[in-house]
């Protein structure tokens, strides 16, 4: 498979003014302004093949959005290299711009006072789509995103979910080969989140486009992405299959046991870390190496009615990564 994205040591520093607190701090900063350099992305290297759907994860401020902005050509890196669809993104060549789209959940490209259809017509002209292509793509998007009657209503009158779907349609009208999605389900209710997720999955399958997605919604990631890239404080922490994260970052498994009579939870601490005991059911985190022995001991020493051993849920692991635990 040809590469859609390749980065080598991608680095971005930001410079921001520092202001001491209070009024006097404000006066001082008028005459003697100090600046602080912050490294938002620090030597990130990865490759993404065409057609992949990759989750890009990290806590707030980890550098996800900055990386997406560099890959879309919005930001010029301080150091390092990147190519996207064979172009250096920040050269902003029209051929590159016609092949990509960046959707930021909190930003809108739609014209506020008039119906979304007008923005679509503008994008038709901007991306040079002929009428037949425009019609075909629009009909398909209207159908997939169930836009129907929303196309003729002024954007300001649409709900957040309706607007987000129009936003996606506007971003996809020109059938980008590379789609960068930054928090596409942010602020949406669960029903709309599911609809948007299903759309992204189906779009990826139908068009074969490469999609890179950031989300704090773990359901998005678990349902859409086989591969994830995790960054922390601008540095690459993990790049690989989502399920392999479990092996790498979960050093324990979860043992759940239901008892026939009451048991003293403190006694169970010898088997692992007791997370919860409720209604004669205990949840214990057990180190992987100790799992077989703990399970055997549990069955031998306690009145067990039912016993389950599970891997730690992926979203728990990613949450732990996010919260630096």
């Amino acid at each position: 498979m040809p590469l859609a994205i390749e980065t080598k040591g991608l680095t971005k520093d930001y410079r921001s003014p520092i202001k001491e607190p209070g009024l006097w701090g404000g006066v001082k900063s008028l005459f003697d302004r100090k600046y602080k350099d912050t490294r938002a992305v620090d030597g990130v290297t990865f490759k993404i093949e065409e057609g992949e759907l990759v989750g890009f994860l990290g806590a707030n401020g980890a550098g996800k959005t900055t990386t997406l902005k560099m890959l879309s050509g919005l930001l010029t890196p301080t150091a390092g290299e990147a190519t996207a669809l064979g172009h250096v993104p920040w050269k902003r060549e029209p051929a590159f711009q016609r092949s990509i789209s960046l959707v930021m959940g909190q930003r809108s490209q739609l014209w506020w006072e008039i119906p979304a259809y007008e923005t679509f017509k503008l994008n038709q002209a901007i991306y040079g789509l002929d009428e037949a292509d425009f019609r075909r793509n629009l009909d398909e998007l209207v159908d997939l995103l169930q836009l129907g009657e929303h196309l003729t209503v002024p954007v300001k009158k649409l709900s957040l979910g309706q607007r987000m779907r129009c936003e996606l349609a506007a971003a996809l009208l020109h059938r980008p080969r590379l789609l960068l999605l930054d928090e596409p389900t942010i602020g949406l209710d669960v029903v709309m989140q599911k609809a948007v997720r299903e759309f992204i999955k189906s779009y990826n399958k139908r068009s074969g486009s490469t999609i890179m997605l950031t989300s704090h919604n773990m359901t998005d990631v678990v349902e859409l992405c086989k591969r994830v890239i995790v960054i922390e404080k601008g540095r690459l922490l993990y790049d690989g299959q989502l399920d392999k994260l479990v092996e790498r970052y979960a050093d324990h498994k979860i043992m759940r046991a239901r008892f026939t009579t009451d048991v003293e939870p403190a006694d169970l601490e010898t088997l692992g870390t007791v997370v919860k005991y409720e209604d004669r059911t205990v949840t214990i985190e057990v180190p992987r190496a100790q799992m077989a022995a703990s399970a055997a001991s549990m069955l031998r020493s306690y009145p067990v009615a039912d016993l389950n051993v599970e891997e730690v849920a992926i979203d728990d692991i990613v949450r732990r990564l996010f919260s630096h635990k």
Partner: peptide
């Protein structure tokens, strides 16, 4: 930051 949406388009 809204200008971002124009800067990434062929415009």
């Amino acid at each position: 930051g809204k200008i971002s949406s124009y800067l990434i388009r062929p415009l």
